[in-house]
């Protein structure tokens, strides 16, 4: 029973109390760049999840064999290999989305969440736990991405998944899409608001002075 709870916690923790974006404040740049539309955000979230989960798993499997002196390079190699795989697969089967994500898929390599989880978790834990930890952190990252992208696409373009949701009558009555929402600055502010809401709901997350 205790073990099962641990597994659930591994997935659940990063969704909220230990969220990589809002609490650990990692991987912010990509969260700002690809949250203009929901679809690319979801694909990006999935890509990051796959990369974190499998690199966690692979590094954890090798953790007793990796020479300590070159462990970072080995981790990077694992991450880079997975990222290139994901990129190539997207180019083959989701060409339009991969064009929108452009360089950001490649930049998953430099996403601090990935290296952070490898160093902090995978090197010291069993493979299955590491896999769950990776899925959890990927999901935590993706959750924030999707929340931010939802508001940015809705308020910035008046659409969701490229389908018009704000009715024409609103525009006729003088409503205008907020073009600011399309710019990275508003993404940062949206992330800030998400952090604010989260911290006021869970006061234990607030730093003590």
């Amino acid at each position: 029973m205790a073990k099962k709870n641990k597994w659930v916690d591994l997935i659940k923790d990063p969704l909220n109390e230990n969220n990589p974006i809002t609490v650990q404040v990692l991987g912010i740049c990509s969260a700002l760049a690809i949250t203009v539309k929901l679809m690319p955000a979801i694909v990006m979230a999935l890509s990051v999840m796959v990369v974190v989960a499998f690199s966690n798993l692979i590094v954890s499997l090798m953790r007793n064999y990796i020479p300590n002196r070159i462990r970072i390079i080995v981790q990077l190699l694992v991450v880079a290999t997975l990222v290139i795989l994901v990129d190539q697969i997207l180019k083959a089967f989701a060409y339009d989305v991969s064009k929108q994500l452009s360089v950001f898929v490649g930049l998953i390599i430099t996403n601090c969440i990935v290296m952070g989880r490898l160093e902090a978790f995978a090197l010291a834990n069993k493979p299955f736990d590491s896999l769950l930890d990776g899925i959890g952190n990927g999901a935590g990252y993706g959750l924030i991405l999707i929340i931010v992208a939802f508001f940015r696409e809705l308020l910035g373009s008046g659409t969701l998944f490229d389908k018009q949701v704000i009715p024409q009558s609103f525009y006729d009555a003088g409503y205008v899409n907020n073009a600011m929402m399309l710019l990275p600055a508003m993404a940062l502010i949206t992330v800030g608001i998400v952090i604010w809401v989260q911290r006021s709901m869970y006061p234990q997350l607030t730093e003590k002075e």
Binding site: Y65, I66, P67, R69, I70, I73, V74, L77, V78, A80, T81, I84, L85, Q88, I89, K91, A92, F93, Y95
Partner: peptide, 30 residues
């Protein structure tokens, strides 16, 4: 250390080469 690095790099290179070759036709079509 050197042996380990060599093995890991080789595995990664083979994996990527195969993936690129397999996916190439689909990418070209796109």
């Amino acid at each position: 250390t050197i042996l380990f690095a060599a093995v890991v790099v080789t595995v990664s290179a083979v994996l990527l080469a195969v993936a690129v070759m397999v996916l190439k036709p689909a990418q070209e079509r796109n």
